[in-house]
Design a protein around this nucleic acid. Structure first.
Length: 304
RNA sequence: GCGCAGGUGACAGAGCGGUCAAUUGUACUAGACUGUAAAUCUAGCGCCUAUCGGCUACGGAGGUUCGAAUCCUCCCCUGCGCA
């Protein structure tokens, strides 16, 4: 037991307080934190993403935060590549990697090792498919890869486009495969009662606005932190960036922004939970003492 | 107290004799997830049943009709106008 390398994964819905736990645990086990958040990788997106501050890190190293500019594209693939290097490095230095975040897909790639087909996004192709109906896209995919067409969500244009992209390059879409990390993984989920989580979301939203979240997003669009970030891009970032930018554009009132955003955050937290539920290895806890003793004495099981 | 308008599923709001358990929106619940994942997409949503199907429903009580959320009568309630 002592000889096998461990990694700790702390997941949970937004506003569950997982970042704080990660820091505490890191101190206890000589760990370093790797963020698993698809939006915290961007520089200048701080309040809107609930990014941990230098002070809150209190000396614990954090990785995969602030690694690209918001006008650049960053995807799971980048995340996995960089993340794996960092894990290796942390282990080499005798520390314990602690992966903490709420982006299930990123964690799936990094920890469970979902293999992403080596086909880069093809802007030109995507543009040419842009105006096709989902039905047309589906038929197109069926023509080049009938097997993938059988399992794909035929109503989801984004997935269809990507599948077509892969298939036109490779001739087919490879089956889902994994190259998991060869370490003992301890999965911890931060459990919060739904009503309490809603309250936390509400309070946190108000406090972020007070701290200048709207200004932050305005600055991104004005190019105060470098290049200008388009409204479309901000909209695609979702949640805070989507609704605040809509407000800034005058599409909705401030009140509408607040209510729609809060609702969207709650919906998002539900989607996160749906994702996490798939992973039976997660041990759901809500108490620091419990987490800490669970880490000391984890069960033998691993995700299968 | 008289006149007019109305009472429909969690809410809003269609339907105005059969194809209605009832359009639609919102809310709610659940799910999917192979380089945009805070994105993108799907399903359910009266009760019982795995399914076929059955049962109870459109303010209440009666009535007309083969058949009513839809027509008639009375009652209760709400809004607006007049007293």
């Amino acid at each position: 037991m002592e000889s096998t390398q461990k990694i700790i994964v702390i997941i949970g819905p937004t506003a569950s307080g997982k970042s704080d736990y990660a820091v505490k645990i890191a101190k206890k086990v000589k760990g370093e934190v790797i963020s698993a958040d698809s939006r915290q990788v961007y520089c200048g997106m701080n309040l809107g993403t609930g990014k941990i501050t230098k002070k809150e890190m209190s000396g614990v190293p954090h990785y995969l935060i602030d690694v690209v500019n918001p006008w650049n594209t960053f995807t799971v693939s980048h995340y996995k590549t960089i993340g794996r290097k960092i894990i290796k490095d942390i282990i080499k230095r005798g520390k314990t990697p602690i992966i903490c975040g709420g982006t299930g897909h990123y964690i799936e790639a990094l920890v469970e090792g979902l293999i992403i087909p080596e086909v880069k996004p093809d802007k030109k192709l995507r543009k040419s498919l842009e105006n096709k109906t989902t039905k047309e896209l589906f038929l197109l995919l069926k023509k080049i890869d009938s097997k993938r067409a059988q399992t794909i969500d035929r109503n989801n244009p984004r997935r269809l486009v990507r599948a077509i992209e892969i298939a036109t390059n490779l001739g087919y879409v490879p089956e889902k495969r994994y190259d998991p990390l060869p370490y003992e993984t301890i999965w911890i989920g931060i459990l919060k009662d739904a009503e309490i989580l809603k309250k936390r979301i509400h309070i946190r939203l108000l406090s972020r606005i007070k701290k200048g979240m709207i200004k932050e997003i305005q600055n991104l669009h004005n190019g105060k932190v470098g290049r200008k970030v388009s409204w479309k891009k901000l909209d695609d970032f979702g949640l805070e960036y989507r609704y605040v930018s809509r407000y800034l554009r005058g599409l909705i009132t401030k009140e509408e922004m607040l209510s729609q955003l809060e609702k969207a955050i709650i919906d998002y937290s539900k989607r996160q939970n749906t994702w996490f539920k798939q992973n039976k290895a997660i041990h759901w806890i809500n108490d620091y003492q419990e987490i800490s003793s669970y880490i000391k004495n984890p069960p033998q099981t691993r995700r299968g």
